[in-house]
Simulated assay, not measured.
Amino acid sequence: MPGTPSPLERFNTAPAQDAERALLACLHSLRWALRMAGHRPYPDPASLLAASDEAAYDLSPEELAQALAAETLPALPEGTYSAAHTALNAAHAAYETKFGHAFVICLDGVPPEETLDRILEDIRSRLANDPDEERVVAAEELRRLARERLTHMLRGAGSRATSHDGAAPGT
């Protein structure tokens, strides 16, 4: 519709507090959100995503821990049988016990029917990591989640990036 601002234009011109709140829904790191909001306006989505990556790579261990603490287990597709929920909960409990935070994974591009298998496979695989290795992997998954949630925000459509609480990304 002519005259209707794009999602990027709305983000660029939103009050700082609104932009920060939207950004915190993408990655729960106050410094990341403040940095991203403070560098507006972004000329195009690619610039916004590049800035997101750069800011995410700069998270301190404490900021990474804060962002990880805000994540929860990925939602499973509707109709997933209860034994799958039990297996996922057990794998997640083992992961959380070992690493002290929720398991995070970006499911962008994973077909819904493969979600459970991918999550279980990745949890089991990543349980073999030592804490330092897993911190690097988890940080990369958070960066990818932030990108996907930002992309969702900019296009206003569904995304396969998941917040573990089952909420739509960017909400």
Rank of each mutant, 00 (worst) to 15 (best):
D165M: 09
W32D: 06
A83C: 01
E78V: 03
P112L: 05
P43N: 02
R35D: 15
T162N: 00
D53R: 15
R118N: 03
F103M: 05
F99E: 03
L120T: 04
A157E: 15
H85Q: 09
E133A: 12
S163W: 04
D122T: 15
R143F: 01
M36W: 00
A22C: 03
T151E: 14
G166D: 12
D58T: 12
L30W: 04
P77F: 10
L145V: 10
A69P: 07
L88F: 06
K98D: 05
S6E: 03
S159R: 11
L24F: 04
T171W: 04
P2Y: 06
A75E: 07
Y57V: 02
P74F: 02
D132S: 12
R126D: 03
V110H: 03
L107Y: 03
G38L: 08
S47P: 03
E148T: 15
E133D: 11
G109S: 02
R144Y: 07
L107I: 10
A14I: 07
T80D: 07
G38H: 05
G170Q: 02
E148Y: 13
S52R: 10
T162D: 12
G166Q: 10
S159G: 14
F11L: 15
D53T: 15
G166W: 07
R149N: 10
A25V: 00
S82C: 02
Q17I: 04
I105L: 15
R124D: 15
H39F: 07
R124M: 12
R149G: 13
L88K: 05
I123E: 10
D18R: 13
P45F: 08
P5G: 00
L142Q: 11
P45D: 01
H152G: 14
A37P: 07
Y95W: 08
L150Y: 07
A33E: 09
L88N: 04
M1C: 09
A67R: 02
S125C: 08
A138R: 06
E96W: 02
A46P: 01
L68M: 03
E121A: 05
E9W: 07
L24W: 06
L27E: 08
R147L: 13
P2A: 11
Q66C: 09
Y42V: 01
P131E: 00
R143T: 09
